[in-house]
Design a protein around this nucleic acid. Structure first.
Length: 489
RNA sequence: GGCGGCGUAGCCAAGCGGCUAAGGCACUGGUCUGCAAAACCAUGAUUCAGCGGUUCAAAUCCGCUCGCCGCCUCCA
């Protein structure tokens, strides 16, 4: 089954056909490094992490490039505020970025080039554009001439007339057309600068991606990705630069993911309604954030709320509890016991991986893929419930296989990566830490309650249970005795 | 104003021309239990924002209306 991807350029879902069969070349716009990353950055990193993992799961080689923008206006401004150099500031937040990414379990891309380490490549590319009369130096700057590229606007579906009619563009006397954008900026005194044929300066934002993708992936590559807010102007301009300079198609497919919103508004620094990744990880397990982010398809907006995170946690727990239950089964199965799994159950479990793939093939539909995991869990729980003490060999193996497949598929979304028993135990411990009662006390109270139960002193028994419940401890009486868990708040 | 997207049960979310409209969370009833909890089973949209149209057949395609969001300025 081919993978179908929604291509921003054509506004259609298209089959992914790598230029080099079995080898997919992907470039993603990474962060501008001047502050801690927020959940929106997490969504971007996680979405492409999932895409890369899935493509590799299918057997492809994936070359994944994600850049760091480590020089730009915001970095210069922030460094000045903090009385430090742009280099120190950028590197500091690159380190912080890795702290977050490692906690989230994001795999490192194949290569992570920095803009400042590719100045020569950018200067060369700008030179190519000037040679072709597609760019012009002016007052120490160099500008791209949008009129020189007849297809300008094809990615974002705009045309020059409409944009100029909307005119929210600041007037700049160096430009011959107000829509022209800067490739090289003359540096002001005190700003970081590099030598160039047009005098000391620094690169414009868009040129770095054109230069670095050309260096590492070639003039035409398979997929370019980023957030929807990058479609215009960033990706439109990249495309104009690259196709202008190389006279070849830049990218076959453009993938743009949706935003994280809060109360249905885009999370952004200017609105001040953003939450950093570490804010979230202070309160939730990284996989809860992953589960939440993958609970909708990557192109749709995703509204953050505490309630949504609680839902995500409940869902993730359900998956872990099922896996833990299977792993708790002892291997003393028998060949003589009758099986409890029906044909429908076996079919449902047996088809899980195919159905999961079908969902993922359809533009990485993780929401549907999660649904398929849950359908399987439902069947597994049903079998587990009916299982006798000495289960049939067939049932035992069916469940073990199902749990293994479940973990394998969940891993594409970075879920179920921990040992299930450990995950649940750690969670219990973490929740217990927030409550003023020790494990020993709980065990002692359960002992007392069980004595009361033996004596049929239900009043005393219920009193103990209710008191524990008030403190957030839930008791569950089962055939193997009383178990307890910390209640979800 | 230009361009793009969205509107499916209490909430979240799949489905993108044709089997009973996935799944999660919450709720309710049942099994279990001394009573609970957990787990399991069952139940919920005659209907997919509204109105028209195309079709043997539409949540799915087309048009219009209403509502929400995003881009057009740095932004994942």
């Amino acid at each position: 089954m081919p993978v179908k991807i929604y291509n921003t350029l054509t506004r259609k879902k298209e089959e992914l056909k790598p230029i080099e069969p079995g080898h997919i070349k992907l470039y993603v716009c990474g962060i501008t490094s001047y502050d801690y990353c927020h959940i929106g950055h997490a969504r971007s990193a996680l979405a492409f992490d999932m895409i890369v993992r899935y493509l590799r799961y299918l057997g492809n080689k994936v070359t994944y490039i994600r850049n760091f923008t480590d020089i730009d206006d915001k970095i210069i401004a922030r460094a000045a505020e903090q009385n430090t150099s742009t280099e120190e500031l950028a590197n500091r937040f690159i380190d912080e970025f890795y702290v977050d990414m490692d906690k989230l379990g994001v795999d490192r891309p194949t290569m992570e080039p920095k803009a400042t380490e590719h100045i020569q490549e950018m200067v060369d590319l700008i030179g190519d554009l000037i040679d072709k009369n597609m760019a012009y130096p002016s007052g120490g700057d160099v500008y791209y001439s949008v009129n020189s590229f007849s297809e300008y606007g094809k990615l974002s579906g705009r045309n020059l007339e409409d944009m100029q009619a909307g005119a929210r563009i600041s007037v700049n006397e160096n430009k011959s057309n107000p829509m022209d954008f800067v490739l090289w900026k003359a540096s002001k005194p005190g700003e970081p600068s590099w030598d160039s044929p047009w005098g000391p300066g620094r690169p414009g934002w868009h040129i770095e991606c054109s230069a670095m993708s050309r260096k590492y992936l070639g003039t035409t590559f398979d997929i370019h990705g980023g957030g929807q807010d990058l479609i215009f102007p960033h990706h439109e301009n990249e495309l104009a630069q690259s196709e202008g300079a190389n006279a070849k198609p830049f990218v076959n497919m453009w993938i743009h993911h949706g935003f994280v919103t809060i109360r249905d508004e885009k999370m952004s620094k200017s609105l001040g309604n953003f939450l950093t990744i570490r804010d979230i990880l202070d309160h939730y397990h990284p996989e809860v954030l992953r589960f939440f982010i993958f609970s909708t398809q990557y192109r749709n907006p995703l509204d953050f709320s505490e309630a949504a995170m609680q839902d995500a946690m409940a869902g993730l727990d359900r998956l872990y509890e099922c896996v833990a239950a299977v792993e708790r089964l002892s291997a003393n199965y028998s060949e003589n016991t009758e099986t409890v799994a029906g044909n429908k159950d076996k079919a449902k479990i047996g088809s899980m991986e195919k159905r999961f793939q079908k969902a993922m093939d359809n533009d990485f539909n993780t929401a549907q893929a999660q649904g398929i995991l849950f359908e399987t869990v439902k069947v597994m729980n049903k079998i587990l419930r009916q299982l006798p003490d000495t289960p049939a060999e067939e049932d035992y193996k069916l469940l073990q296989d199902a749990a293994a497949t479940l973990k394998k598929l969940a891993a594409i979304m970075g879920l179920l990566q921990e040992n299930a028993a450990n995950y649940l135990a750690a969670k219990k411990a973490a929740m217990l830490a927030r409550i003023n009662i020790s494990e020993e006390e709980i065990v002692e109270l359960i002992k007392q309650r069980n004595q009361a139960r033996t004596d049929k002193d239900w009043a005393r028994s219920d009193e103990i249970r209710d008191n524990l419940l008030d403190q957030g401890i839930e008791l569950k009486d089962g055939p193997e005795g009383t178990k307890w868990s910390v209640k979800r708040s």
